[in-house]
Every structure is written in C-alpha cells, then in structure tokens.
Design a protein around this nucleic acid. Sequence first.
DNA 1: AATGAATGAGGTTTCATTCAT
DNA 2: GATGAATGAAACCTCATTCAT
Lengths: 209, 209, 209, 209
Amino acid sequence: MNVHSVGAGGCQIALGKDAAKYQAILQAAIRVMATSGYHRAQVARIAREAGVADGTVYLYFKNKEDILMSVLRETIGQIVMLSTWLEGEHPDPLMALHKLIEAHFSTLGEDPDLAMVLQVHIRQADRALREEVAAIMRPYHRTLDRILEVGQAAGVFVSLPDPRIARRMIFGTLDETVNAWIFTGAKYNLKTLVDPVYTLLIGGIGKNS
Amino acid sequence: MNVHSVGAGGCQIALGKDAAKYQAILQAAIRVMATSGYHRAQVARIAREAGVADGTVYLYFKNKEDILMSVLRETIGQIVMLSTWLEGEHPDPLMALHKLIEAHFSTLGEDPDLAMVLQVHIRQADRALREEVAAIMRPYHRTLDRILEVGQAAGVFVSLPDPRIARRMIFGTLDETVNAWIFTGAKYNLKTLVDPVYTLLIGGIGKNS
Amino acid sequence: MNVHSVGAGGCQIALGKDAAKYQAILQAAIRVMATSGYHRAQVARIAREAGVADGTVYLYFKNKEDILMSVLRETIGQIVMLSTWLEGEHPDPLMALHKLIEAHFSTLGEDPDLAMVLQVHIRQADRALREEVAAIMRPYHRTLDRILEVGQAAGVFVSLPDPRIARRMIFGTLDETVNAWIFTGAKYNLKTLVDPVYTLLIGGIGKNS
Amino acid sequence: MNVHSVGAGGCQIALGKDAAKYQAILQAAIRVMATSGYHRAQVARIAREAGVADGTVYLYFKNKEDILMSVLRETIGQIVMLSTWLEGEHPDPLMALHKLIEAHFSTLGEDPDLAMVLQVHIRQADRALREEVAAIMRPYHRTLDRILEVGQAAGVFVSLPDPRIARRMIFGTLDETVNAWIFTGAKYNLKTLVDPVYTLLIGGIGKNS
DNA sequence: AATGAATGAGGTTTCATTCAT
DNA sequence: GATGAATGAAACCTCATTCAT
C-alpha cells in the first residue's frame, strides 16, 4: 500500500511501485517553489530536480496544481493533526496553547524551504486553491477556538463576545512571527520564540500594575 | 510637478500631460487585480478598464511590475505616512496605538478592492517586488517599534528584550484580522473591531486575577 | 466592414484592419492542410506560410479548429450557395442537375488544394466538427432532394419511395469522382467528366434495349 | 504458421504463442477507434481494452499505424476476397453486381463498429496509410471494372469510353449509402437497400419512356 | 513471452511588450 | 502623446514507444 494513496483528497491516478519517487517529486517541488514561487516554478525544473523525466511527474500528479495541493495536504495536514492531538493530550488550555505554539514553530522552523512555501507561495495560488487551503486549515482554527472556549469557561482566559477575535490574534501573531523569521533569512532558531510569544499572547503588551 | 512622479522608484518618463490618465490606470489596475490576482491580471484588460490603449500604459509605467509597485507606493504609502503623522500627533503611546489601529482598519475597510490587492495579491509577486514592499512597509514597522519603546520607557508597556516580538504580534493581529474580514466577504464594518482588538493586544488573552 | 466578419458562424474576435491578412492565413491553412492533413498541420507552419507570427493567427482565429471551420464556412458555403442559386435559376430539373454537377466539378477542379482539404482532411476532424460540416452541407442535400422531387412530379425522374436513395447516389458519385481525380494527382480537367457523369446518373449503367 | 503472419505487410516478430491475443488486440483496436477515431485512439486504451499490457501490443504490432493497417488488411481484405470469389461464381454480370452490393452491405451492416472505422476513421490516416488502403482496395475496384467490361461486351451495360467512370458511380453510391447509414445511427437494416440501390444503378434516375 | 513504469519530444496557446502610424 | 496590431518566447501536458525485470 502506498503511503500517499491514503487520505481524503486521494490521488486519482493508479500509482505504481515507487512511493519514493512520489516523495522525491514532492520534495523537489517544495525546493523549486521555495526559490521560484508558485507561478515561476516550472514543471520541467521540478522534474529535473527530482531526477525524473517531465512526463513522470504526471504519473504521480494530475497537474501542476495537484503538486502544490499535495504539498499542502501532506504538510499543513501534519500541523493540523498535531494540533488536534495536542488538544486532546493537554486538557489545560494554557498548556495546550503553549504546546501548540511549540509545534507550530518546530515544524516550520526545521524546514525553511517548506516554511517558505507555506508562508509565501501558497498565497500566490488561485481562488480555488486558496479555498482548499482554507478548508485544510479549518481544523487548526477550530482547535484554537476550542482551546479558547475551554479557557474562558475555566476562567483562565478573558471573556470575549467573539472568540474568533482572539483566535485571529493568536494565529496572526504566529504567522507573522514565522514570516519575519523567513524574511530575515531563517538565521535564528524559531523555537527560542515560543516562550516570549506565549507570554505576550497571554499577558498582552500592556503593563499590569 | 506631477503627483505620481514623486517617490523612491520614480518614473522614467517625463509626464507632462495627463495625471488623470495615470490615476485612471492605477485605479483600473486595483480593480482588475482585485478580481483576477496579480498573475492573472492582463495589461490589456487594465488598459481597457482604464479606457486607454494597451501601448498607453507603457507611457505611464515601465512594465507590469511597475504598475503594481505604484499601487503599493501610493496606498501602503498612505497608511505609512498616516501612521508617522499619528505618532507625532499623539505622544501618548496608548493613544497612538489606538489611532494607528483605527487608521489601519479605516483605510482598508473603506476600499475592499484595495484591501484585496494589499492583503492577497501583493503576496503573489516575485522576490524583488516583495522586498520592495518590505522597504515601503519599514517606516510603518519603525513607527510601531518606536511607540512600543516609548511605551516601555513610560512604563505602560511590558519590558521586552526585543520589541520586535511585540511589533509582530500587533502587525500580525491587524493583518490576520483584515484577512479574515476579506475572506468572509467584507460583510461587516471593519472599524467595529478597533476597540476589541486594541483591548486584546493591550491585555492579552489571559485573565488578570 | 470586414468581409470575413459576415456570416452565420461569425467570428467572435474583433478584427482589426487587415482582411487581407485573414485571407492570407486562410489560404496558408488550406495549403498546409492539403499537404499535411488536419492533425499534422501545425499552427506554427500555417503562420510561417502566411508570413505572420504565431500569435497573429490567434488575432484572427479562436484556435486551430476555428481555422478549419472557417475554411469550411467559406468554401463549402460557396458550393452550397451556388447550388441553391442554380436551383432557383433553372426550373427544369434535368438542367438544374446538370448545372449543379458542373458547379461542383468546377469549384473543386479549379483548386486542387482546396479539394484535397474538403475531400480528405475535413474527414479527419472530430465528431463535433464533422457534425458542423454536415450542418453546412445540409442545404446542398436539400437542394438535391428538391430537384429530385420536382423531377419525379414532372415525370422526368423515376418514382422512388425514398428520394434520399437517389440523392446519395448522386452525391456519392460526385464525391467519389472528385476523390479519384485527387488521388490520381489532379492531372486531368475535372470538368470533362460533367457530361459523362450526368448521362450515367440519368440513364444508369444498364443498357436500355 | 500463424494466420496473421500472412499478408503483404507481414509481421516482423515471430509469433509463436498466441494468435488469440493478436485477435483480441485487433478487435479492441476496432472498438476503440470506432469511438475515438484514429488520432484520438490511444495505444494504452487499446491494450487495456484487450486485457494486455501496453508493451505487449508491440510484440504483435510494429507500431500504432501497423495496428490500423492490420485492421484494414483483415477486414477490407474480406470484402475484397469475397468480391473476387463472387465474380468467379456468377458469370452473369448483373447477378455478380447484385451479389457484390449484397456482400458489401451485409459485411458492413453487421458490424457498425467496423463500418465506423472503415468509413470514417481510416480516412483520418496519413498519406502513406491511405495509399496502402488504396492498394488493398484495388482488387475490389478491378473486380468492379471487370464486371463492367464483361457486361459491356455482353451488351447488358452501356458502352463507355472509360469504365472507371461507371465504377466510381457504383463505388461512390455504395460508400455514401453506408456513410448515411452510419451517421443516422445505423438504425435500419442496411440490407433492405440492396435492391433499391441496385435498381437505381442499373436504370439511373431518369425515367425511360 | 509479458509487463508497465518511465521516457521526452513536440504542439497549442497566452500575453507582456514594441513600434509604425 | 496615443494607438493597437503584431510579435514570439515560454510552458504545460500528452502519449507513442522502450526496456529492465
């Protein structure tokens, strides 16, 4: 059974023997898109980088968009699943939030190319693809929403008319932090920011007298 | 002197006649990019929408990228200048931050097309363009940094080893809030979120016992 | 007004100044298809043969299929219209038939390349295109049917339960005669066959004792 | 000796094992080409339809063109041989002609897929292939020519300077009749047209007073 | 003999840009 | 200055064919 034939989106092409080749193309795609961006990334170059012929790419992916989609499914998917798992693992909403930030920064901090694709180039995609991205991200947002709700009920988080406002603050903060890390060349260790960011999100920038 | 011949990038053509035509093309570009995205936006369509011939576009802009750049310069520029002005106008850092959030949400909230371009399509641009965007944004970030520093010195903001962590939280939160507003169809009034977001940024999500 | 913007099918592209260029491309297409066939005919070669750039072809035609369609519309159309006109001009069905054969052989006999396209390469087209061809041909068949009906009523043609059987004999005979002429290299004058074919169609191959 | 290794074109591979597989591929080719046409017919689909691997096709046929050629050789060949046999069997030219029309309509009328290929898709082939088709057809045309000559000598057919004119009428009529039958969906029984067509060919459309 | 994964050449079409009028 | 017809490079994708297993 091929690893990559599993999953909701699935792959409509009967995949032959080589799951390694599928991964090779996927990794090549991440590499090429990291440097060239989505629209500039040529299928021919992805193929060359993966060490296969142009046509081979189409044995594993339906088309260029499908390549990007698969990068998404396999990577955002990881963070999303990780977040869901963490939520279940840590009933304490404060701890859950901390672990989630850690997971977010760890996953992207360990693979700058992947982070580049997810933070920058994904957003170059067309409307249809962006909606797909949103759909994949939704469980992540739901997890954040639930953590916030539980925290409010437990009295550790402030009460808000709409928890989505806080969720956007959290997600926006993580997102922008990763962005900044990428654009400064991914030189420092993203994980060192877990605690400062967590503290700031909890306490805000205002000084509690 | 034409309004649009001012600025860092400048314009290589001496424009004598028609500043109105320049604006028409710029507005058309915003409209077309809002619906089609950067890469799908065709120069021919921008020209048609602006009521000029294809070639005329090249009398006012060096190339397609230059059109986008100019959209940036003229719009981000407004927020940036506004923020600088607000900073000078309001010595109180809390007030300055509040006014800045208000300016940010007002400017984008009043022109969904423009917001769409700035939030979504700008990011489809190439490396060079994104770096230019960053350069234009820098004064905005500097303003935030200074407000934070003044606030720390005055004891109204928490002390942080690196104020940029807080700045990214602020900017990331505003950015994600606008993003969410756009993707849900820009149905509600963005300005209603000024106070909740401000409060959350100051106090954090944690409950102060 | 452009000559080629008239007609049922029309042309969905706003055509600029040059009706001559439209004709040049059309003639080039006939020439290229005559030698290479429909599927082997490359747009690039048609463009080169017409003395224009590849892209220019797409200013005058929507796509490759549209080129072929236009060859059809403009040429079969001629025979069809001619046949309708002849029918009106000659109330005598015998004379009408004779004139029609003459028109058929004249039109194709004068332009072997065009004949090649119509007899051979049109038939390489896809289902959709062939149905379009059939639609364009229909008036021609209707004309034949009417001539046969009038002739039957007048007692100069045999009575048949279904006139379409006779129509297919006439059309099939003309078609095969042109085919044979083409495949032997279009060496003789097709018009010399008007009388023999007419006589044979009227009298059959059987000897009237 | 395999059935299919006989013939002009021959088969470059010594086939030991499986004449049934050869036939399976041939029948699959007819089926696929009937629906998709020559150029749209993919070797992979023929293989799948025949229940063999792609590569296996190339053990039995030199290339795609060879497959079509073989369809021709084996099917037109049948009509051709049948016609030759009928000619020998029926010294009476009128009877011979009648039997030949019957054979023509029977063979194609019983297998619409085959008829589709022979009437429509064969003609999508390239020059070289069409010449091969002509070569295979030639004995059929010769048979018609001889029947006509014998008939003329016997005084049952009209005298013509060139019997090929009459032959083209006969063949064109049969061809167009089959064509019309196919394009109307092969709904009626083609054999019911044997007598009307025969009568018309013999007597012509003119009324003998 | 049989397989089917891999190959890679080849063609249509788009669209930013130019330049003669 | 303004025009817009013309340009032509560039890229995705298909599919006949091969060859290692």
